[in-house]
Design a protein around this nucleic acid. Sequence first.
DNA 1: TCCGTATTCTGACTATCAGTCATTAACTAG
DNA 2: CTAGTTAATGACTGATAGTCAGAATACGGA
Lengths: 235, 235
Amino acid sequence: MGIPERKEREKEARREEILNAAQRVFFQKGVAVSTMDDIAQAAELSKGTLYLYYHSKEELYLAAANRGMDIMAHMFQDASATTDDPIMQIFRVGDAYYRFFREQRDFFRMFYFYESPEFHAGVSQGMLDQCRQQDQKVWAVVTAPIKRAIDEGLLHPELDPLEVGIMLWSNANGFLRLLDRNESYWKDAMGVDLLQTLRKSSALLLEAMMTEKAQQKYAGMILYKDSPVTEEEKE
Amino acid sequence: MGIPERKEREKEARREEILNAAQRVFFQKGVAVSTMDDIAQAAELSKGTLYLYYHSKEELYLAAANRGMDIMAHMFQDASATTDDPIMQIFRVGDAYYRFFREQRDFFRMFYFYESPEFHAGVSQGMLDQCRQQDQKVWAVVTAPIKRAIDEGLLHPELDPLEVGIMLWSNANGFLRLLDRNESYWKDAMGVDLLQTLRKSSALLLEAMMTEKAQQKYAGMILYKDSPVTEEEKE
DNA sequence: TCCGTATTCTGACTATCAGTCATTAACTAG
DNA sequence: CTAGTTAATGACTGATAGTCAGAATACGGA
């Protein structure tokens, strides 16, 4: 009998319709000022129905944010797959983060909430697990080339991949957040090329962590020179 | 007649009493779950009175956060004043941020809200100005030694003080935020010395930005060696 | 000391919003 | 067609930020 299967599909479809509506509303109004009534109206459902599919507004937010995390993870994955050179991979992932910032600004802004301390209330265990899973997925893509670079003697062996990842991530994140609020000021008033600035700071960090061997290999690519990262790499 | 002056003083005192009460409540319960009724009770006043002194809960929060910013700015200032060497000053300010994190954790956590995008609603212009002023005060203390280091040929002349400041700040911030949530994990389970890790990453960044001249001068102080930053500097 | 006025304070009230639940509607199986 | 199961509804509750008409208090002058 295919009826239970169809019902299951319809239930899943409705769950997704609700999430689509929520995402639209979040993007348009901002998470904090979006109400469940807004979302219900956008979904053409009553508010009560939303709660049959999601336990709380937070959960709906997290589900939407997870979509963004998924997009980001895929962009990182794709960027990393364009080369075999671990140092290049690190740069490419950094570039991908910048591209995510440019192309998925709404999601980028939604992530501001992610680390707000007042979550974990009214959120189901399943959703929390899903979040942790997404976190780990992104983190794995970020740390994998770092670990390889250390193993291959390109970065100093005393370094810990996690530590390096945090440094690069914090650096990029700090930059992009600042950018998000003061874009026009930076770009128009000061004429700063933002992608280059971000790259330069990442390059500085990476160069500092490289072994001599690697510094020779990548000499001239980074640090006060124009970065040829976007050109085809020479293996 | 001294009566209007006395009244002015009393008004200011009441304003401060309210802020003290709000701070106590925010510290104890967390900003998000603190209610205006909580604060009114703590201040032994009615809720309506709070609104005669502050326009909104956000404004009360910002006033409390500004106190924290003030403490931080002073700690940075004091740390910077312990030496004349600009590179040392940068390290000392970094250490001071770590100390602020340790000693003023409640304020550190309150800052999470500061950058949340949904502010600027129900906040008076005066308060916003005060916030920007505090921001600039902290930023000035951070960038001053960086600027000096560039001018004195210790950091590469192509660098922009703002850019360097963002990099160091983002790095420290990213670290400390992670620490704030996973302290016991890092310390107990992995045996990482957090102050050393933070210093090492700052040192890596700084070393990468130094001129050869400076790298010689500060050789051995940083980068994979124990940092003697806390010892008396040798001028 | 007493009165009119200005200032300060109060707490009941409103508006908004997340989340609930008794009721209704729709669908399914026999 | 009917009984029973599942899905959907929207009025309702509780919490809370913010308001405001009026009470209480302080002051200055007679």
